[in-house]
Design a binder for these strands. Structure first.
Lengths: 274, 274
DNA sequence: TCAATACTGAAACATACGTTTCACATTGGG
DNA sequence: CCCAATGTGAAACGTATGTTTCAGTATTGA
């Protein structure tokens, strides 16, 4: 009990806290442990609670006074910086207990696997194309990946002109595809239970001489045959269904790199937006 | 001068210090920065000097008061622990390396940090609520996070009935909010450049006695005050803008756990869907 | 719906903290 | 060796801080 970190104490006690006390707890966790080293008034203000509530919160963690609590934080911080090894040593990782941690570890692993398997040249090629602001850019996704396309659209719009997202329904898409000009860029998403409509879309894009970038899963959509660049993502996890976090990460990486490459245009648009 | 760390200031000023002041400086460097966060009396005692000397030492470093000095230490510490990537932030990024790999590593780190900072009880509480299929579930996001809400909606729809997403425009939202009944669940997204409309939405949800789960960034939206459960995600990366991958990962974790908890209902719906 | 209970934060309070003062100690120059 | 100049810390001081109280508010259960 005495050998617990403040953070651990919070995790253990948080259920028994009242609503305002919980705000204090969250505030502290959000920028741990710095907020706890500030005076009570500032702690309270930043956490959105009253000083009295913060004090009650501290008391519930088992500290006799606020100075006591601060001393614990300092000691802890000292122990951490003096021996970074100690931290991982006294943590025998309760695998069974924490769903979130275990799940998050898998997603993080998927991201790493994805990044290492995608050839740098392919990734760069896609980004350079996206950064070429003279060419229009079309996005489309399937049932679940449509949200990824939407996210990417929102960000690309901030960075460059000529971004549009195709409608989810094929009927409407056909009309929109008429706007695609030779040399345009297309970012398409397709994952398992590969969508026949996406296959058609890719073919049509290709017929119109668009530069097709296909973002797909590790088993690779049949539409890949007709794409110029294929970016496969690791989606399998310890479940019966797949996780798209690595795909989302790839989208963010694409946005980041594109923004860099198109900085002259992007910086103007971003500042104009604010 | 203003952008110097305290440690750097000490190294620069140490030669001009008097003997007792230098003891104070050595003491602070010996266990930096913890000693500076202690009260002056303790600092003085551990450094082998008098409180007055410590104060003079602080003044020589250019601080107007001891609290001022402590605030500087806290800010500095925060910058360091908030992003272990600070090094790459200050130094010219080594472009030579693989962009994608480096970027992906940051996102993976953000996911881990997010998972470890979220109390298990908070996460579980949100999932249990979502798995209660008798209560309707409402989702809403902001400009960029709307895509996350959409993704979550698409998956939750597969798992349970009574899922609806609020319109992006506040005007339309007001009508939709009339459908919210006491005991309903609300999943709301709000991140920096916190949306005033989202604050209103949260308040309205609360007024209607909904159970509000707020997904936000590490700096925590002001809307958190009115939420039952707050799930903060680490979004800061080595750029001027933020990355939402950890937030997406959290969404997938929520979906996964909810599906587990609501399996009787979920399994039926999923198989019916195929 | 209403009463009982628990929670919350503004304000009053007491304490401990940072700060200043000043007498004494130390150092360096004549 | 003595004197001036500077450095030093014990004690006094005022203020900012932590703490407690209590009236108002929200929540819970009957």
């Amino acid at each position: 009990m005495a050998e617990m970190t403040v953070e651990e104490r919070i995790h253990e006690a948080i259920e028994q806290l009242t609503s305002a006390e919980r705000r204090a707890a969250r505030g502290l966790l959000a920028n741990y442990p710095m907020l706890g080293l500030a005076p009570v008034a500032e702690f309270a203000k930043q956490a959105g609670a009253s000083p009295a509530t913060v004090l009650r919160f501290i008391a519930r963690l088992g500290f006799r006074s606020y100075p006591d609590f601060q001393r614990a934080l300092r000691d802890e911080l000292q122990a951490r910086t003096q021996s970074p090894l100690q931290r991982s040593r006294n943590r025998p990782r309760q695998e069974s207990g924490n769903f979130l941690t275990a799940f998050a570890a898998q997603l993080a692993a998927n991201i790493s696997a994805t990044a290492s398997r995608i050839p740098q040249a392919e990734f760069d090629s896609a980004c350079r194309r996206l950064a070429d602001t003279r060419r229009a850019c079309h996005l489309a996704g399937g049932r679940f990946t449509d949200a990824l396309a939407a996210y990417m659209e929102a960000h690309l719009r901030l960075v460059r002109p000529g971004v549009r997202r195709l409608d989810g329904r094929m009927a409407a898409r056909v009309d929109q595809l008429l706007d695609v000009k030779a040399g345009d860029t297309a970012i398409l998403f397709d994952m398992r239970r590969y969508d026949p409509e996406m296959l058609d879309t890719v073919k049509l894009m290709r017929d119109r001489r668009a530069f097709v970038v296909l973002i797909t899963d590790e088993w690779i959509s049949p539409a890949a045959r007709f794409a110029k660049v294929v970016l496969p993502c690791r989606v399998s996890i310890d479940r019966t269904w797949d996780a798209n976090t690595a795909m989302f990460a790839l989208v963010e990486a694409l946005i980041a790199r594109t923004t860099e490459l198109a900085w002259p245009t992007a910086s103007q648009r971003i500042s104009a937006n604010e």
